[in-house]
């Protein structure tokens, strides 16, 4: 296992793509968060709103490059045929997949931490100027605040789970383009679907069931009114990731390479 991990890490660091995608994920996350914080306003009468969630909104964009990276980690090998070399070097296929999953989780958690902290910092710097001040009931964002810490740590975990879901989907489909299409579809179509559904019961169900439900972990206020609770939402995303990985392991183990 150590050797397989070492091999996967060497693969990741010896091509330019993964680094650029991780930097892209950080840039996209922080940029969207900062831009959103710059356009909201809180009048003198005070305002509602969830400043932590607002500051972390960029995760919704940053998850796309993370998903692409995760799909390419194995989809790229299916594209060139290098997967056969990988499985010749590591014939225990579940070990090979696990090594990919662990390495991927490591780099996504590292990049996700930078992205999340950058977003919170941007929010902390920009929001007071937009009227989100202590006087209006919005103390400066701080990780010392329990719900904010949950939102931050949860967002990092969410990105890691999206990466694992994408790795699983790409392993099942054995193709990068299809894999990216399916994963982005799952991430962005569920919210759209929820919007167009008229029936409130079904709407809530769709909001709870999609892999993006984990973004509920970013909520720090009004948690009771959400379609799904913070940890429960992250649990749904974890369920998607686990299902995809288990199916991927079964397919990988039983199919001809």
């Amino acid at each position: 296992m150590t050797a397989a991990l070492h091999a996967e890490w060497t693969k990741l660091r010896t091509v330019a793509g993964p680094l650029w995608l991780l930097l892209g994920a950080i840039a996209a996350t922080v940029a969207l968060s900062a831009a959103t914080a710059s356009v909201v306003t809180c009048g003198s009468a005070g305002c509602g709103g969830d400043t932590a969630r607002l500051s972390l909104i960029g995760v919704q964009l940053g998850q796309a490059p993370v998903a692409v990276l995760a799909v390419l980690v194995i989809g790229g090998e299916y594209g060139t045929g290098m997967i056969r070399t990988t499985l010749t070097a590591t014939p225990r296929r579940v070990t090979a997949l696990t090594a990919k999953a662990v390495t991927l989780t490591g780099v996504v958690v590292a990049a996700g931490t930078v992205a999340v902290l950058g977003s919170l910092l941007a929010g902390r710097l920009i929001l007071p100027a937009r009227g989100f001040t202590d006087a209006h009931g919005h103390p400066a964002l701080s990780l010392a605040d329990g719900p904010t810490l949950r939102a931050a740590a949860g967002s990092i975990l969410y990105l890691a789970l999206i990466a694992l879901l994408s790795l699983g989907v790409a392993t099942i489909l054995r193709d990068s383009a299809t894999g990216i299409g399916v994963v982005l579809g799952l991430l962005y179509l569920f919210p759209v679907l929820a919007q167009v559904i008229g029936d409130p019961h079904w709407q809530r169900l769709v909001q709870r069931a999609g892999p993006g439900a984990g973004l509920a972990v970013q909520a720090t206020t009004g948690v009771r009114g959400l379609p799904i609770g913070p940890w429960a939402g992250l649990g749904v995303t974890a369920g998607w990731a686990a299902a995809a990985l288990v199916a991927a392991a079964l397919f990988l183990h039983n199919r001809d390479a």
Partner: peptide, 21 residues
């Protein structure tokens, strides 16, 4: 032809070497 085109020849051999310790 089963190679990542963006990886150097040496790096390709390096990951394989790592996979075997």
């Amino acid at each position: 032809a089963a190679l990542h085109p963006g990886r150097t020849g040496r790096a390709h051999l390096l990951w394989l070497a790592r996979s075997q310790g």
